[in-house]
């Protein structure tokens, strides 16, 4: 099948995009198109108007000011993986970015599109929740800032209104080290399970993806003893509404949390290495 007919408008400012979205109720933004176009190709969605935001320069910056990392919504997954300052100050984001789809998908797909799409198996929604980021959203009334923990509402669902645009993500410098791990059937596939873990020394937080309908940052104790830690992951998991609950899913969730914790303890170049946080068979 091919996409149904639509009108096409290119914009260069957020204000223009918002106006078009407000005036045409079944209009849609197209950013990377890596989630939207497959849906259109199968006619699972048929917007009347596509508002192409790729020409909005103001959404394409990565700015690190020593306290916050600000990533414009149009920044591509591959740019995040390759960004020198992100690798240095937020290495967990660079590692996570490498696990999103394949190279060709990462070259076009954007962080803003991923957040708006809110696939529960996606890396970015979980990353923003794990790192306590804020998401800047612009609509007809101006800009509002939504904590990531309140942005995601469930499967493919967010607080974003149809006439609002994600403009940027603001991520505070993490006080503690984070680790990341995910497992997929093949390199580049969506995760079967994945986790971000923050180790604050003896305790910390775990944020899973691919496990529940949305990412949740769960507090947990982090004992040194591995058996005790596995027990802690189980307990943390127990607080979530697990999708398609099964023994294997719980097993993967515990494995990924444990691996993410181990990743958080790697030093220097090893932390960013190709093998780190990889999803080799368990």
């Amino acid at each position: 099948m091919k996409p149904a007919a639509f009108e096409y408008q290119r914009v260069t400012t957020v204000a223009e995009a918002v106006k078009l979205l407000r005036d045409a109720p079944d209009a849609k933004v197209i950013a990377g198109g890596q989630s939207l176009v497959p849906l259109m190709n199968f006619r699972l969605t048929r917007p009347s108007l596509l508002v192409d935001v790729n020409g909005i320069k103001a959404l394409q910056h990565v700015v690190w000011d020593g306290t916050y990392l600000r990533i414009g919504s149009l920044v591509r997954h591959q740019q995040i993986a390759d960004h020198a300052e992100i690798q240095k100050h937020f290495p967990v984001l660079a590692v996570a970015a490498r696990h999103i789809g394949h190279w060709a998908i990462r070259n076009r797909g954007t962080i803003g599109g991923s957040l708006a799409h809110a696939d529960p198996a996606s890396e970015w929604p979980a990353a923003t929740v794990a790192l306590q980021a804020e998401i800047d959203v612009e609509g007809p009334q101006g800009i509002r800032t939504v904590p990531a923990s309140e942005f995601f509402q469930g499967y493919y669902s967010t607080v974003l209104q149809p006439d609002e645009l994600v403009v940027a993500v603001r991520i505070p410098y993490p006080k503690f080290r984070l680790g990341f791990a995910e497992i997929a059937r093949r390199l580049g596939d969506f995760a079967l399970a994945g986790a971000f873990v923050e180790d604050d020394g003896g305790q910390g937080f775990v944020t899973w993806f691919g496990i529940a309908d949305k990412p949740v940052r769960v507090h947990t104790v982090l004992p040194d003893n591995m058996e005790a830690r596995r027990e802690a992951w189980q307990q943390a998991l127990g607080t979530l509404a697990i999708a398609d609950d099964s023994k294997s899913r719980r097993h993967l969730a515990v494995q990924m949390a444990e691996r993410a914790w181990q990743h958080s303890r790697l030093e220097g170049g090893k932390y960013l290495s190709e093998e780190a946080a990889g999803g080799d068979p368990l």
């Binding site: 096409y8 197209i30 198109g33 070259n107 076009r108």
Partner: peptide, 19 residues
């Protein structure tokens, strides 16, 4: 369907020609 767009591999099935 992979082609290079400005030198980078991308999916030509997930991009409209008009873009």
């Amino acid at each position: 369907c992979t082609v290079l767009i400005d030198g980078k591999p991308e999916r030509s099935c997930l991009t409209f020609a008009i873009q």
